[in-house]
Design a protein around this nucleic acid. Structure first.
Lengths: 156, 156
DNA sequence: CTTAGATAGTTGAGCCTTCAAGTAAAGGAG
DNA sequence: CTCCTTTACTTGAAGGCTCAACTATCTAAG
């Protein structure tokens, strides 16, 4: 027998769905309008910018960007065409590819990040108390661990 | 000057993003595999199934499904082609359209809902305590209210 | 009654994502 | 060394979403 959602669960589920969809859509619109880039692509650049040598293996980048290999491959192809990312063969492994953030990509991030952070703050963190921020972080960490157990555990 | 995210905010933001993306992707895959339907389309059917006469004006349905008018229009067109939804002109307003869930659509929901609820429970609610469920609901309600103030307030 | 503006919904083009299939190199067994 | 399996990534086609433009109807002002 199916165990249906109780009232609290129902409410939480609908609020969560609405929040993630509307929040994501709002951020996507802001980035698209101000920088002509998708939120998904922005994250790809952001993850590269934090990595040593501003470069990452495609598979590692895919994990950090919550992306499937295929999606990342297409996204990096588009970013490469715009001159923001470059691809090189991976050393030590002939199968691999490393994506590298170019100077133009770095510059574009530097120009775009302030507006984006402001939007995130406005829509999300300005609404919440520090306790709620920590609680939300904990809850998501728990759920994440159930979705993909090797995620948090890995040394990074 | 941009106020960057502090450590707690950073962590929460990344966990939230990863959670919503991976959770959504998992549910989408489950529905696609078991029922050949997108999560977004499933929600459209689910919202119709709860409405009086199993029918809603397109604009009301769009709000309930967190969808833009255009997205909903396309989605309903696809659902109509599959025989799960029917469109009728709205009474009293020649501009309007009401979407109606057909018997076939109702049946398809009845077949699909158990598996979907099980997946939601497994990925989300089985991981959380009742207190966390309520806390998450409250946090999302707060954020939602900031994103779209007329949302909660409306009498429904 | 006429007209200007707002509202409801649809459409098509272009972009993004998914899925399945394909290439190529690495690793491991015999 | 050879073959087989696994891993890493890419590709093309099909489908969904976004944006801007369009049609039709309603509302309100004069």
């Amino acid at each position: 027998m199916t165990r249906w959602l109780d009232e609290d669960e129902q409410r939480t589920w609908r609020n969560f769905l609405a929040t993630s969809e509307l929040l994501y859509a709002a951020l996507d619109r802001q980035l698209q309008r101000d920088a002509g880039i998708t939120h998904a692509s922005y994250i790809v650049l952001a993850m590269l910018s934090e990595a040593p040598d501003r470069s990452l293996r495609m598979s590692d980048l895919a994990v950090k960007a919550n992306s499937s290999p295929s999606r990342l491959s297409h996204a990096v192809a588009r970013l490469e065409a715009r001159g923001w990312v470059r691809r090189e063969p991976a050393p030590q492994d002939g199968r691999g590819t490393v994506a590298v953030l170019t100077d133009a990509g770095w510059q574009m991030l530097a120009d775009t990040a302030p507006g984006h952070v402001t939007a995130v703050r406005e829509h999300l963190f300005d609404q919440l108390t520090p306790e709620q921020v920590r609680a939300l972080g904990d809850i998501c960490a728990t759920v994440l661990d159930g979705l993909d157990p090797n995620r948090v555990a890995r040394p990074c």
